[in-house]
Write a protein that binds this DNA or RNA. Sequence first.
DNA 1: CTCGCAGAAAATGTGCACATTTTTTGGAGG
DNA 2: CCTCCAAAAAATGTGCACATTTTCTGCGAG
Lengths: 247, 247
Amino acid sequence: MATQRGRTGKGNGKANPAEDEAVYQAILHALLEGKLKAGTKLAEPPLADIFGVSRERIRKVLHRLGAERRLEMIPNRGARVPRPTLDDVRSVYEAHRVLEAGVLTQLVRHVDDALIERLNAHLAEERAAATRGDRAASVRLSGAFHVHLVEALGNAELSRFLADLLSRSSVMVSVYEPATDSICAVDEHGAIVEALRARDVARAIAVSREHFLHVESRLHLDDDTTPAAEDLTVVFGAVKPKRRKAR
Amino acid sequence: MATQRGRTGKGNGKANPAEDEAVYQAILHALLEGKLKAGTKLAEPPLADIFGVSRERIRKVLHRLGAERRLEMIPNRGARVPRPTLDDVRSVYEAHRVLEAGVLTQLVRHVDDALIERLNAHLAEERAAATRGDRAASVRLSGAFHVHLVEALGNAELSRFLADLLSRSSVMVSVYEPATDSICAVDEHGAIVEALRARDVARAIAVSREHFLHVESRLHLDDDTTPAAEDLTVVFGAVKPKRRKAR
DNA sequence: CTCGCAGAAAATGTGCACATTTTTTGGAGG
DNA sequence: CCTCCAAAAAATGTGCACATTTTCTGCGAG
């Protein structure tokens, strides 16, 4: 009865954009969180089952994620979590590095005390998280630092591009995990702010560059390439278990 | 007979990805070419009629273009050609400027004679088009110059971002047409190459910056804001007139 | 035991029939 | 002549029933 199968089941096309968004967010979140391992197949029927929505709903979301290049869509063969190569990862880091060089170049023209103050406040947060040993917060704040830099320019296009790069690299760390030990070097962030305060473009760029190369160097290839079969019901554990399949 | 309307028309789900692509390309092309004025409503039924495909096909393409932010999608209200504000345009130009600063910074580390030679060859083409008075070619080559620069880095992410910016600004010129007179200053491109050859980062960036500001300054607001109602059959004139409506 | 290959099962792709908005139309009243 | 409002018309959104394609399965030949 759960889904009224009686009759020919004429469409009752009731609009519910929030539901689309919920499914989208759930899958995206699982993706960014690294809960979905690279190579995992995302089939429509099981997902529709798990979220308790129609298959069309799932289909639309999957295609959207594909258009955003967060999923790999193959015609007639469905969606898979992409398995980035090491070169892909380097490409993303390099892009971030190049972008930040441009951002810093532009930023030194607009630095003011207020900006420096805001950045320093952020650095304080980072240090607090580091000494606290809160790794999750450290990772998050580390990325947020670069977001702060680009957002200081107030350019929506650039901000969006950076957000795209960050989300993509955050997925990648789950494949090429950058060593769980020491955290992203808050001091390097501090050095960037210091160079900015001094209006020293060359130094800011140099420090930023070193920072990225440092992070990049920590990447190591996990050649075990786990076949990565996964149980989706576990990943999206009890999100909206309207219906289930017995089998 | 063209589209077998007899029977209840049960789904004949024959896959034809090429058709999707054709419709997508047709609309995208019209958009980039500036044939679709800002604010134009793109309704599904007429488009389906013009291209001779099902409405679902059109719908999918429209949503895809919306996801790429080339069309403005409003829930329950369909797709419209976006009407960028002057600030939007400036934002795109600024993003391009900032990005190129980063690209040049990175590029001076990898310049070699072969690259300089390629760029000079391109400049020769630009000059030829300019003296020939071929405005269309000039505009195209002017954009291609910047593409050459970023592609010299061989970074797919950066190339994609630039392509995105360029395609967006090309749409915008149809709204804020940057004076049909003198062309994009080939000399400024030449100065960038010259600075690259000399490995002079600061100068390259400065020249590039001036170049963009120069182009930006030519933008002028067309406040006439044409109501822009348009006949789609004219825009997509006889692309695939399988069926037509009499009315 | 491996390989190959039908047949079955499952998954993806598409048109269509509606439900739900939104937009247009046509007067009635001020 | 303009404004407001209800009914009609048109457009968008959604589930579903298929067709098509891919993947899985079982079994027999080498």
